[in-house]
């Protein structure tokens, strides 16, 4: 993949994945609690995890369990009437509660970045999608217009859009949901963030495209130490990508540990249920006996 080798500005020497567990976390979530100000209910009750460079943490659980809210809290973009009522989030050693808007602007995109579901609402419908990616590159990486364009096309190619030059010049309404999702992923990694939050980022994608995106993310982890938070309802995606898993239910983390331990030797009843459902309504239903033989 040419994307990763080129255009990595020389001044950006990074602690790569090889940096041991002693490397300081890019993102540290400590006992975060989130409440709904209107109903005064606590929606998220104490979530903690640390993301060192190159590490991937998966969050699984039913919808409404607080996965997305936790991610949004880490990015400082909670929906209107929600607020963090306890714990802290640190990005690169800085407590986000102390960040000013300009500081946030500097962090987002280049240090921490995110892809959510519903890609259309994160892109401007009246600007060509390629220009939106190029803008990220120009602002965050200080590239000239032409270089930015070149880089944007490369990014579009990296997310396996079949005709990146064409897609560059298209508007959101001309692209399918899966294509938009990929455009959004390209935009999210455009400024070489150190941490990426992927909230159901590959759910809407075709399975072969998903495989390419998963490969791309794995490659970014390996080469430039990208740290990942993966929220997915697909346990297999989490199992494939993550070192560590959090299982959330009704705002609480019911199980947290290394992926292997959690998914192969689940302790909590709810985790067992999730795995059983996956076994019954997933490819495992047929694959398991074959693998065993």
């Amino acid at each position: 993949m040419t994307l990763l080798s080129q255009h990595t500005a020389p001044e950006q020497t990074r602690t790569v994945a090889t940096a041991g567990p002693s490397a300081p976390p890019v993102l540290a979530v400590r006992d975060v609690r989130i409440s709904d100000r209107v109903t005064e209910r606590e929606i998220v009750r104490g979530v903690s995890f640390e993301l060192t460079p190159g590490k991937a943490v998966g969050i699984v659980g039913e919808s409404g369990s607080g996965k997305t809210l936790t991610c949004r809290a880490a990015l400082g973009i909670l929906p209107p009437h929600f607020e963090v009522t306890g714990g802290s989030v640190e990005i690169d050693g800085t407590d986000i509660a102390t960040l000013t808007p300009p500081q946030w602007a500097a962090l987002r995109g280049s240090t921490i970045s995110a892809v959510f579901q519903d890609p259309a609402s994160y892109l401007n419908p009246s600007i060509r999608v390629g220009a939106q990616i190029a803008e990220v590159v120009r602002v965050k990486k200080g590239l000239k217009r032409r270089e930015a364009r070149h880089r944007a096309v490369e990014l579009l190619r990296a997310v396996r859009l079949s005709d990146p030059e064409l897609v560059y010049g298209q508007y959101t309404y001309e692209l399918s949901g899966g294509m938009l999702q990929r455009v959004l992923i390209a935009a999210a990694i455009a400024a070489d963030p150190r941490a990426l939050i992927a909230d159901e980022a590959t759910t809407a994608l075709d399975v072969t495209v998903q495989a390419e995106i998963l490969d791309l993310l794995a490659e970014l982890r390996e080469r430039s130490g990208l740290a990942l938070v993966v929220v997915s309802h697909d346990l297999a995606v989490v199992a494939h990508l993550c070192d560590e898993v959090l299982v959330m239910r009704q705002g609480e983390v019911v199980e947290h540990g290394p992926t292997r331990a959690v998914l192969y030797d689940p302790q909590h009843e709810y985790t067992r249920l999730l795995i059983a459902e996956h076994d019954q309504y997933g490819l495992e239903k047929f694959l398991t006996p074959k693998e065993a033989s």
Partner: peptide, 8 residues
């Protein structure tokens, strides 16, 4: 009971 919505 009022269902909790809008967590997404």
């Amino acid at each position: 009971p009022v269902p909790a919505g809008g967590a997404r």
